[in-house]
Design a binder for these strands. Structure first.
Lengths: 260, 260
DNA sequence: CCGTCTGTACTGACTAGACAATGCCGATGT
DNA sequence: ACATCGGCATTGTCTAGTCAGTACAGACGG
């Protein structure tokens, strides 16, 4: 029964490639069902495990989603804009930006968030960015934001405990004027920020918090807010599922020669 | 989805979780070998396919890498900085080197790149950003950049053919002073840019071009460069493997109230 | 001392089954 | 008319093997 040596691409890869191109050219539309494992088994004349390996590969590539026991479905991707700059600059500046935003806007969707405040010894990467000594504590506001009831992203803001104790930040409620304004009022106005964006697969914890399907990578956006004198006063860790976000930055006022 | 598993975790998931935590706590160090499939099969008393399913899950999470026939190895991650903003900062004095090369040669690694110029009808997403009519052509400079012989990222720059024809940009060579400067000299100086960052799994094409292992997501960074009058003159599509990059932005001069 | 050859220990690919869990839908009963 | 109950289709999980391909190391010959 052994399949003859047909080049070096395995059979399952060919099946996957076949399905992949059919999806790409629209033969299978988003959110519709693919042929069943049994269908494909018969169609390609292989064992079920082989078809399964092909389908699993596509699942892990984020192209399809298994909805047992109904079948495999073509995944649909409709990302919304995520603008790190916006927290300090509420409105977009340029007309180009506006017309771009119109494409994927969140209008008409119902936003909601959960807030949970606690005092912790922060993880090592946060501790480093806040320049905290060993054993020094931080306040953390953990939020999960939802759109139409679906988890959208998480936002964990860490503050050195010494500067936020007994402020509004410690209360697990919305802060209408923004936590940054509260900090500014107590003499910790941020004037600079450093954004780092890591791209990786989610941890089991993140999968659970955000209800992620397999094949969904995340961006981990770590924002460090700095005062005039360079003191870090805030570190925000955002976990952004790749299938739900486009990260957008605007850059302007470039006069240097610069390389392409 | 996450809720449905109530203590009924499959065996393969337990094995995966077990290995995952051993990796996390350092029982298996980066770049060392895990127990063999046979070892694990005996240790957990299950069939090889079950152990295999656990290992495959970890591979797809980017935690381990199979190096047949030597075994599975713990993956190591050592990302380098990628700074979209830097391309417009003043050029250093290294005439022969690209900005990229100047940045990274300091770290003692050997940079190299391939350049390939062609005239194409660009893909739909690029066409839209350049506001090209149907059938209108563009010049594309396709580059793959390497570090110590390993592919690092790809950089495809698209220009409307009408404005770059017969310029230096059409030659498949390094442009010491930068392609942006060439554009500026011909009256198309860019003053603004829009960065979009998408996070997803790579296409087979990208896997091949960048020699990506499974479980490696990519960031797709699309940069649109605009002239003073808002005309787009350049669209750059960068594919950045997640295990090799941290994307960094600096933000300063924040005055607005802004939401947190 | 150096190259070559071969065996071994692995993973990769595939087969051919079995049983479990669960949405869905139609039949059945009230 | 409506709720309830099964059966069915389909994926999820797991077993128990076979054969192929290959990096590595050790034996062997010149």
């Amino acid at each position: 029964m052994a399949v003859s040596r047909q080049g070096r691409t395995p059979v399952w890869a060919k099946i996957a490639e076949d399905l992949r191109s059919k999806i790409a050219e629209g033969a299978y539309q988003p959110d519709t069902r693919l042929p069943t494992e049994a269908d494909l088994t018969a169609q390609y004349g292989v064992a079920r495990a082989t078809v399964r390996q092909a389908l699993t590969a596509l699942v892990n590539d984020g192209l399809i989603v298994p909805r047992a026991p109904r079948g495999y479905f073509v995944r649909l991707r409709q990302p919304l804009f995520y603008r790190p700059q916006q927290e300090f600059r509420p409105q977009p500046q340029t007309p180009e930006m506006d017309r771009f935003m119109a494409d994927h806007s969140a209008e008409g969707r119902e936003p909601r968030q959960t807030i949970d405040v606690s005092i912790v010894e922060p993880p090592a990467d946060v501790k480093k960015r806040l320049r905290l000594a060993d054993g020094e504590m931080a306040a953390v506001r953990r939020r999960i934001r939802y759109l139409d009831g679906e988890p959208f992203h998480t936002n964990d803001s860490y503050y050195p405990l010494s500067i936020v104790q007994d402020t509004e930040i410690m209360r697990p409620l919305d802060i209408a004027r923004g936590a940054n304004e509260v900090l500014a009022e107590s003499g910790h106005r941020q004037v600079r920020a450093l954004d780092e964006i890591y791209v990786r697969m989610p941890t089991p914890d993140e999968i659970q918090r955000l209800d992620l399907g397999p094949g969904t990578p995340v961006a981990c956006h770590i924002c460090t807010g700095l005062c005039e004198d360079g003191t870090p006063v805030r570190v925000v860790v955002n976990i952004l599922p790749g299938d739900r976000h486009v990260i957008v930055y605007e850059r302007g006022g470039m006069r240097g020669a610069g390389n392409e």
